[in-house]
Amino acid sequence: MTTIAGERIPRHGSRIIAIWLVLTAISVPLIVLVLGPHLPPPNMTVESADQRNANIVMTALLVPIALLVLVYFIYSFVFFRETSDAIVDGPPIKGHAGAQLLWIVVTSAIVLALAVWGSYTLIAGAHGAGGGQGPDPAAKPPGYQHALPVQVIGQQWDWTFRYPTYGGIETRDLAIPDHTLVAFHVTSIDVTHSFWAYELGVKADAVPGVDNIAYVNPRHTGFFQIRCAELCGLWHGHMAKKGRVLAAPAFQAWIAAAQKQNASIVKYLPKYSRVYYPLPLRRAG
């Protein structure tokens, strides 16, 4: 930046910016159009589609930032390296107020924009974005009063599901109807688990004594993968099963069959409740 009289200084800055612009112009469309549709999660629900959009936007924003830093570093390795064996000092530049200010302004703007946009999707756009919101959700989707409640009970080491609006039956399989707002009420009867329905874009910790609510709007039918995302002991990795989004009539048929199957045992189940407190759990031995 300081020009030493008589020495021709190549325009390093413009070259770096030019290389970066070219790379950005190539990579951003590739990210949005080619990589984007493969970014997770598969968009089976409104919420998971929002999550995928978040991932696409962020990749498209962050890759250029990474490219700028990388282009600069590689450029400097090539052009600012000492080729002789001698130890030669470089120009004693100690700082540049303008460059520092520019950096602070630009990074702050990016960060604030990300935070505002993230909060908007979380609250107004995606109504919790499929994440567990605790017993009293801060972001409620329209019509949440009529959402189909499905209780998810984590236990070492399985998931079971209760349908309070269908007689409180408890099943080992999860099925939900298509195009219906579903409210998962996730809880646990022993240690902390985390209910993760990958394709649905749902993740909510199963916490003993807590009714953790996550909303989801399925958009088409199919299978989804259920896993546990919080270490819960020995067989944590085995808390995986497939759930199904069914068309409304198929769901009615399924739940009717489940009710019939449950009829003889439902009276032995504890009364449906938002949380359960089994006896204090002590040491396994």
């Binding site: 830093v69 600012f80 000492e82 120009p91 460059a99 990074t107 990300l114 935070a115």
Partner: peptide, 25 residues
């Protein structure tokens, strides 16, 4: 996300220090 602003400074410092330097690898 705010914490990435001061963290980003570290990168800016490196960028500035490498500018027209005599790097020895």
């Amino acid at each position: 996300e705010l914490i990435s602003i001061p963290t980003g400074f570290i990168f800016l410092i490196a960028i500035g220090t490498l500018w027209r330097a005599r790097i020895r690898f």
